[in-house]
């Protein structure tokens, strides 16, 4: 027996290996297309460079508004002094959409009590990183939100 195994594989062992290998390859041939099918095709994202959100005179001070920036929600805040700031509205913790809380003067995520200041920095709660900043510019009375370089 030992001599036989030393010499090499028996015909039975060889056929077993071929069968197992063949079965593995067959499984791969099924699984690969299935997994690839489930991975959604990359759809062409419409590149949005800026969004006009309306007239500044019509936006209340000390208020926040979610706007659609391409496929993403962006939170635009008009502060008490009339200045604007804008952030990606998805909480950096677990992806919920944040809101501006007038009463707290903070950006707040209702899902897990995350709080950010008006510069997007984490004040308290579980978010691990600040909110991504967007830029706001005024063209006459029109408020334009655009993506900063950072």
């Amino acid at each position: 027996m030992n001599d036989e195994t030393k010499k090499g594989k028996t015909r039975r062992e060889f056929l077993n290996d071929v069968l197992i290998g063949g079965f593995g390859a067959w499984m791969m041939a099924i699984l690969y297309p299935v997994i690839s099918y489930l991975d959604p095709p990359k759809s062409k994202e419409v590149k949005v460079s800026q969004v006009n959100i309306g007239k500044s005179s019509e936006i209340e001070k000390n208020s926040g508004k979610i706007i659609r920036f391409g496929e993403k929600p962006v939170l635009v805040i008009k502060k008490n002094n009339g200045e604007y700031s804008a952030f990606m509205a998805e909480c950096t913790h677990l992806n919920c959409t944040v809101q501006y809380r007038k009463d707290l003067g903070l950006i707040y995520c209702a899902c897990h009590n995350g709080k950010y200041d008006l510069n997007g920095k984490v004040v308290s709660g579980p978010p691990p990183a600040p909110l991504q900043k967007y830029e706001v510019a005024l063209k006459g009375d029109e408020v334009i939100v655009y993506k900063g370089e950072g």
Binding site: I66, I67, R68, P73, L75, A89, T92, H93, L94, C96, T97, V98, Q99, C109, A110, C111, H112, N113, V122, G125, P126, P127, P128, A129
Partner: peptide
């Protein structure tokens, strides 16, 4: 998809204990 998460949002009761713990773990 373009509205903020409402206040008082929480999952089904059987996920609540995990949800509460996630609130406590710092960033």
């Amino acid at each position: 998809a373009f509205a903020s998460a409402p206040q008082g949002i929480k999952p089904e009761w059987y996920f609540l204990f995990m949800f509460q713990i996630l609130k406590y773990i710092p960033g």
